[in-house]
Amino acid sequence: MTIETAPWGMTGRDQNGVMPAVGAHTPPDEALTPDEVSHQPAEKARVDMAANFDTLTALEAESIHIFREVAGEFERPVILFSGGKDSTVLLHLAVKAFWPAPLPFPVLHVDTGHNFQEVLDFRDRMVEKYSLRLHVASVEDYIADGRLEERPDGIRNPLQTVPLLDAISEHRFDAVFGGGRRDEERSRAKERIFSLRNAFGQWDPKKQRPELWNLYNGRHSPGEHVRVFPLSNWTELDIWRYIARDNVELCPIYYAHDREVYQRDGMWLAPGPWGGPRSNETLESRSVRYRTVGDGSTTGAVLSDASDNFAILAEVAASRLTERGATRGDDRVSEAAMEDRKREGYF
């Protein structure tokens, strides 16, 4: 059976028009080595190498290179892991980068106390699966002891900054991996892959360093640290293509399921510890899924029947809004809401 490479970089249909099952590709880590190629007929070698090199393979190789660069340049890196799709792909790539050795970095989750329970359960399952060292910075603890005050609107995502910076300082992390992508939001489009933060954790877009020819400058002074974004050049569609190609396990909240939701400001929100519908809002059962996962009080679901990776791929390809623009209320406060938070030390 001959498998053709589809123009978008995923494994295509065979000559009978049948789509292979997810995971039926040749894994990147099983691609032909130069030595193996030299022992094959030239034409077959060219075909095999072409079939194994596509857009996703290039993006994966870049991300793995970044992980290894950081391992060589920094002493105490950490991966931000929330259980969302981007941080899950980030973790998947990190495990690949150092396999079969264990992941040499701990993971850090800044827990708002308003997370979906499915996401917390998934986070703990991944920690156990890969035998990870997990650090949790709790916004709830900061509110309880008076170090932070609850916002009038009840949104806790902006309150993550202080616990995050305190955790970085306490554990002396000098490089912090995040799953930010440039296509998500305009301020993230300004980010370099290595983003220097000053001694107060603040970001200055005017002090971004050039990264010509994929050369990354990790130099920093005592007290400073570097935020690292291995997924910078990925898009939401790339993420879902990669999840389908590598059969990456995700939190089930990303797939269509029935959930009690209510509509507010054009978004479908779910009730929880953060509150529920107001008197003028109606709770109803709908088939929904989440494109992004954050604070439950401000992260909206989308109406969807897409229950598998390929159905989601079709939805994402047809969308004209990024996941943050469509379903994150905290980014609607102002046009510069994300940039303002980043200047304060937020990711």
Score class of each variant (00 low, 15 high):
308 D>M: 03
308 D>K: 03
309 N>P: 00
309 N>L: 05
310 F>C: 00
310 F>W: 11
310 F>I: 08
310 F>G: 00
310 F>T: 10
311 A>I: 00
311 A>H: 02
311 A>S: 15
311 A>M: 08
311 A>L: 12
312 I>H: 07
312 I>A: 08
312 I>S: 07
313 L>G: 04
313 L>A: 03
313 L>P: 05
313 L>Y: 04
313 L>K: 08
314 A>L: 10
314 A>I: 03
315 E>K: 07
315 E>Q: 14
316 V>P: 04
316 V>F: 03
316 V>E: 12
317 A>R: 15
318 A>Q: 11
319 S>P: 00
319 S>M: 13
319 S>G: 04
319 S>W: 07
319 S>A: 15
319 S>F: 05
320 R>T: 13
320 R>D: 12
321 L>V: 10
321 L>H: 11
322 T>H: 06
322 T>N: 09
322 T>F: 02
323 E>Y: 12
323 E>P: 03
323 E>K: 08
324 R>K: 06
324 R>C: 11
324 R>W: 06
325 G>H: 08
325 G>D: 11
326 A>R: 14
326 A>V: 01
327 T>I: 07
328 R>M: 14
328 R>G: 02
328 R>A: 15
329 G>Y: 01
329 G>I: 02
329 G>Q: 13
329 G>L: 15
329 G>A: 15
329 G>K: 13
330 D>V: 13
330 D>R: 03
330 D>H: 10
330 D>F: 13
330 D>K: 03
330 D>P: 01
330 D>S: 13
330 D>Q: 05
331 D>V: 13
331 D>C: 08
331 D>P: 00
331 D>I: 11
332 R>L: 13
332 R>H: 13
333 V>F: 05
333 V>L: 12
333 V>W: 02
333 V>T: 12
333 V>N: 02
333 V>C: 00
333 V>K: 12
334 S>D: 11
334 S>T: 15
334 S>L: 07
334 S>Y: 04
334 S>E: 06
335 E>V: 11
335 E>T: 12
335 E>A: 15
336 A>K: 12
337 A>E: 12
337 A>V: 07
338 M>V: 09
338 M>L: 09
338 M>Q: 08
338 M>D: 02
339 E>N: 01
339 E>W: 01
339 E>Q: 05
340 D>M: 06
340 D>F: 03
340 D>G: 01
341 R>S: 12
341 R>M: 15
341 R>G: 03
341 R>D: 10
342 K>L: 14
342 K>D: 06
342 K>G: 00
342 K>Q: 14
342 K>R: 09
343 R>W: 02
343 R>D: 01
343 R>T: 04
344 E>G: 13
344 E>I: 02
344 E>T: 04
344 E>M: 14
344 E>P: 00
344 E>W: 01
344 E>H: 10
